[in-house]
Simulated scan of single mutants.
Amino acid sequence: MPANKYALLRYRIIDRCLTNPGKPFPTKEELRLACEEALYGSDGEHISISTIEKDLWAMRNEADLGYYAPIEYHRDERGYHYTEDGYSINDIQLNDDDLDAIRFATKTLIQFRELPIFQQFDQALGKIADRLEVSPNLDPEGVDKHVQFESTPHAAGSEHLGPLLHAIRAHHPISLTYLKFTDTPTESTYVLEPYLLKEYRNRWYLLGWDPGRGHIRTFGCDRIRGIAVDDTQKFQVQPSFDARNYFEHAMGITVLGDGTPEDVAFLCDPLLAKYLTSQPLHHSQSMDLDEEGQVTVRLKVMPTFELLQWLQAHASELTLLQPESIRRSMVDNLQNALERQKISGP
């Protein structure tokens, strides 16, 4: 009997868990939680362990699916895995039921793309809709010769999103084992009150209140090595924190304390101005054209690392007018870069 649309979606989620190198050998409960979170969020329990057991059996044996997935339980690791290296049901050609499930999920999401809660995913939903429009059968043969979509790598650390989201919603503090990016990488442990998960440039970040330091800190999820949730404790979110407005004046993931945003202004070449017109840097961006044809771009943003990085990348196309602090940092960094590129003669 053909599987229903939700079962087909669960198979894809289970496959993703079984092929996740960051968290191998998932248990039935971990598979259940992954499906629950992906399909229903954390609102109650809609999927049972028996459903997962049936899914695993179907993926192994159901002829209509055609997966015949080599799934086995590993007694030493106490979890499930594929016995064939590199196996994934994604490598198997989609059948009609798979295509119907994808169309069903896509059409359901697109109906709600204008709602505020879905607006942050509008670009992703648009890409899915565009793919279905150019290739209703999702057949890559021929299509990729004429239309190529940008592909993004799997975000390392995404396996932590489930337990982190649970702790955020339930207001449970966590103990975080974290590996810093330093010359000599070392693991450190932090006790945090988790507030927010944010994606930036295909990486996930956790924002949490550090009671010891008395301020919010940011951690890259790809550097998290372990999470322990304290279900016996509850915390209250700091009154000054507003998730909706926290990044209002930030370009990127960095927010510098509780400081106020600064006025940033630079002259830019006409070609760069056209790009900034079609894709603004920030919602505060304004552009003025003077009588001599020069374009001045103005922003009201925090002086963040990401802003400095962007300005340096386009240094040959712009002249920074203000603020002076960023201009000095920009000049110092570019001079250091120039020194590094000098090659001594023979």
Rank of each mutant, 00 (worst) to 15 (best):
I343C: 03
I227G: 05
F112K: 04
D210C: 15
L161A: 02
A101M: 08
E292T: 08
L192N: 11
G162P: 05
L276T: 00
A156Y: 11
K180V: 00
Q111Y: 14
L334I: 12
L307R: 14
Y195V: 07
P153Y: 00
N137E: 13
V255E: 06
H172F: 04
A34H: 04
E141D: 13
P270D: 09
S286T: 15
E114A: 13
K23I: 01
K198V: 00
E324K: 14
A34F: 05
H146A: 09
Q285H: 02
R32P: 00
K342A: 02
K23D: 11
F219E: 03
Y11W: 13
L289K: 13
L161E: 00
L33H: 08
E53A: 06
Y67H: 03
I13H: 02
L267Q: 09
M251G: 06
H146K: 10
D97V: 04
Y11M: 08
L256F: 08
K5A: 11
L33F: 10
A273L: 07
C35S: 12
D332E: 15
W209C: 09
D222G: 06
M251Y: 15
D332W: 10
C17Q: 11
Y190G: 06
D290M: 02
A243Q: 13
T182L: 02
Q335C: 13
P261M: 05
L308M: 14
E45V: 12
T83C: 00
I168K: 05
P280V: 05
A34C: 06
T260D: 12
S316D: 15
D210Y: 12
I71P: 06
T19Y: 00
T319N: 13
G252K: 09
L99N: 10
R298G: 04
L99D: 07
L192F: 05
K342T: 02
F118T: 13
G293D: 13
R75K: 02
P116T: 04
W310H: 08
L56F: 03
A105G: 11
S240A: 14
P185R: 00
N95D: 15
I102C: 09
K234V: 07
G162L: 15
Y275D: 14
R169G: 09
P26D: 01
D183K: 07
R244T: 12
L281T: 09
S158T: 03
L272V: 07
Y195R: 07
H172R: 03
W204L: 13
S135F: 07
F181N: 06
Q285D: 02
G79D: 14
P173A: 08
F219P: 01
I343L: 06
L320R: 11
D15V: 00
A337L: 09
S344C: 10
T27M: 01
Y6P: 04
A58F: 05
H46K: 12
H146L: 09
L276I: 02
L192T: 02
K28H: 05
H282M: 11
S48Q: 13
Q279S: 14
A250E: 07
R217D: 02
K5N: 10
K54I: 04
P346G: 13
P163C: 02
L125H: 07
Q285I: 04
L56D: 00
D15C: 01
L299F: 10
E30S: 05
L338K: 12
G157S: 05
L281G: 10
L39P: 10
